[in-house]
Design a binder for these strands. Sequence first.
DNA 1: GATAGTACCTTGTCGCACAAGGTACCGTGT
DNA 2: ACACGGTACCTTGTGCGACAAGGTACTATC
Lengths: 117, 117
Amino acid sequence: MYIVRMDKNRNYEEAKLQMRKGMLEFCTLLIISRGEVYASDILKELKKADLIVVEGTLYPLLSRLKSDGLLDYDWKESSAGPPRKYYTLTANGKEKLSQLKTTWKSLVESINTLIRT
Amino acid sequence: MYIVRMDKNRNYEEAKLQMRKGMLEFCTLLIISRGEVYASDILKELKKADLIVVEGTLYPLLSRLKSDGLLDYDWKESSAGPPRKYYTLTANGKEKLSQLKTTWKSLVESINTLIRT
DNA sequence: GATAGTACCTTGTCGCACAAGGTACCGTGT
DNA sequence: ACACGGTACCTTGTGCGACAAGGTACTATC
């Protein structure tokens, strides 16, 4: 006898309609899609985009994305310091990102319409 | 002897750097700025913009904005049904909205740059 | 005076962003 | 050899807010 959990907040079909919640996720995927990066790189990029994030936010997010199968990582040694986790998008991650891009565009469209009216 | 609460999450100076959290707030202010509306009107408009919201989300939000001095309301009778609360922006609300518009534009800029790169 | 429609609001749950703190690896200086 | 400063990973505890579900109250119609 199994109990089926709906896992509401990981429902990616509905995520389409909740873009505001996924901003950070979207940007993170976006940054990773541009090339292998590790956590500190991502933090730097997010800050450039005025999306303030701290480690305590980013690491759990990366773990979530990993366990959702959107990300993968490889350990690579650093010339100075401990090894780093370099993240890449999986096929699912790319798929997801492309959906999010579409949603993003239509959200921007909608809000710009609101602003102009 | 008073205890001073910092009330972290109502700090509107920092809100500039946390746009993603304020999407819903932003859109709500935007909608109200276009003319007197009541809750159901706002819900309809938000849904048009693909920002799914339910009553249980909107009412507390409106109360928060009211107690922050960004909104005001007047009771008006309806031709059919109970009276309605029609919301308007206060001076502070207009000020806040104009800040948020600026932040929104620069956020869109940043993300579009990320997308293009 | 029941029902249907509209409108406002509250309660309980859960995920997430954050602050703060913790572990571990590496090279350099003494 | 070992203490340190720098880097990188991760966890724990707190509070807010989005949501689902349920509740109150007013109006008109049958």
